[in-house]
């Protein structure tokens, strides 16, 4: 049976921070991107796969329904995976559909007008803060951190801004 080492929200999906920092140290052997637009974009999939070829990790790109089905059918085989999401809505969707996420790292969300910075790489909208509260109430540990070497902010502290 496989396991989910970490779920991360990062609107850049696979990039330097993920490959050089998060994937090391957690004994990770796979990165699963969960994003409906990317799953429908063969060229973007190709870019991710050719960019990570020398990493020794397995890279897969799923739609939300595909990743839930893959978990239900295979329990992720023998993969110790990092799950990457572009936004918090998508995490909520797969949690509601039964994916057993226990730790959720919010690592990168470009700031929009109504958002507030929680850490320099994350702008959080009030609506996203509400979703995170609801995820936390289901027992998911939510924390904000760009890379493992930087300071982590708990959801409780982040919500003080709202």
């Amino acid at each position: 049976m496989g396991e989910i080492n970490l779920a991360r929200v990062d609107d850049r999906l696979i990039h330097g921070q993920v490959m050089t920092k998060w994937s090391r140290g957690l004994n990770t052997n796979a990165i699963f991107v969960v994003d409906n637009p990317t799953a429908k974009d063969p060229f973007m999939k190709e870019v991710y796969i050719m960019s990570t070829a020398s990493s020794g990790m397995t890279i897969k790109v799923f739609s939300t329904d595909e990743v839930v089905e893959y978990w239900n059918k295979t329990k992720f085989e023998n993969y110790r995976a990092i799950l990457l999401f572009k936004n918090i809505d998508t995490v909520n969707e797969v949690v509601e559909k039964g994916l057993p996420i226990t730790r959720l790292n919010i690592g990168g969300i470009a700031k929009t007008k109504e958002a507030k910075f929680v850490i320099p790489s994350v702008g959080l909208k009030p609506s996203d803060a509400e979703i995170l509260k609801s995820l936390a109430s289901k027992g998911i540990e939510v924390f904000f951190q760009t890379v493992p070497d930087t300071k982590a902010v708990t959801l409780q502290d982040a919500l003080k801004n709202f």
């Binding site: 850049r12 999906l13 696979i14 990039h15 330097g16 490959m19 060229f43 973007m44 870019v47 991710y48 050719m50 960019s51 990570t52 990493s55």
Partner: peptide, 16 residues
């Protein structure tokens, strides 16, 4: 700069 980073993802995607 770095293969696999965001700037590289953007550059490679332009090949499409």
């Amino acid at each position: 700069d770095l293969l696999g980073g965001s700037p590289s993802n953007v550059g490679l995607y332009a090949l499409k």
